[in-house]
Every structure is written in structure tokens, then in C-alpha cells.
């Protein structure tokens, strides 16, 4: 965050992406197992939502772990 104090903005971003990634992965795995009939999207067979959710979880985890405030030396990073 700002110099010499506080939590890094990248930690907030990592946390948000992690939450989003988990929610999107769960929703799309459920959709893959029991597809809804009301909404048909193009290229549904690619299960893009599952892959995007996993990508968000990975990116979120990297930021979350790397910029966690309880890690030594992380309180002076933007």
C-alpha cells in the first residue's frame, strides 16, 4: 500500500479474484453437470466458465499469498 504502512492493494485484488474464481468455478461445474435449458450460449461445450474460474483462482491465490499482510516485509509494498 502506501509506503511503510498498511495492506497492499494487490492483496485486496488477490482476495477478490479468489472469491470470484471460486464462485464462478462452482457455478460453471454445476452448469456442466446439469445444464440449464433456458439459456444457450455459443461454444458451451468448451466449458469456458470453468477454465476462467480456475484461472481467477490461480491468479487470485498468487496475489493473495505473495502480498498477504502477515508475511514478513509485506507492510511496505504498494
Amino acid at each position: 500500500m502506501i509506503e511503510n504502512k498498511g495492506i497492499s492493494i494487490w492483496f485486496f485484488i488477490g482476495s477478490l479474484l479468489l472469491i470470484y474464481g471460486v464462485a464462478i468455478t462452482i457455478a460453471n461445474v454445476y452448469e456442466m453437470i446439469s445444464p440449464s435449458m433456458e439459456k444457450q450460449i455459443v461454444l458451451r461445450e468448451l466449458n469456458f466458465g470453468v477454465w476462467w474460474g480456475i484461472l481467477l483462482v490461480i491468479v487470485g491465490l498468487i496475489y493473495f499469498i505473495n502480498f498477504r499482510p502477515w508475511k514478513k516485509g509485506n507492510n511496505n509494498k504498494n
Partner: peptide, 12 residues
């Protein structure tokens, strides 16, 4: 978005 985005991706 409606063409490609499934659950959650639409919200995103």
C-alpha cells in the same frame, strides 16, 4: 456478452 458469457461470467 449474452452470446458467450455463462453463469458468473455475465456478472463479471
Amino acid at each position: 456478452l449474452a452470446r458467450y458469457a455463462g453463469p458468473g461470467l455475465l456478472g463479471l
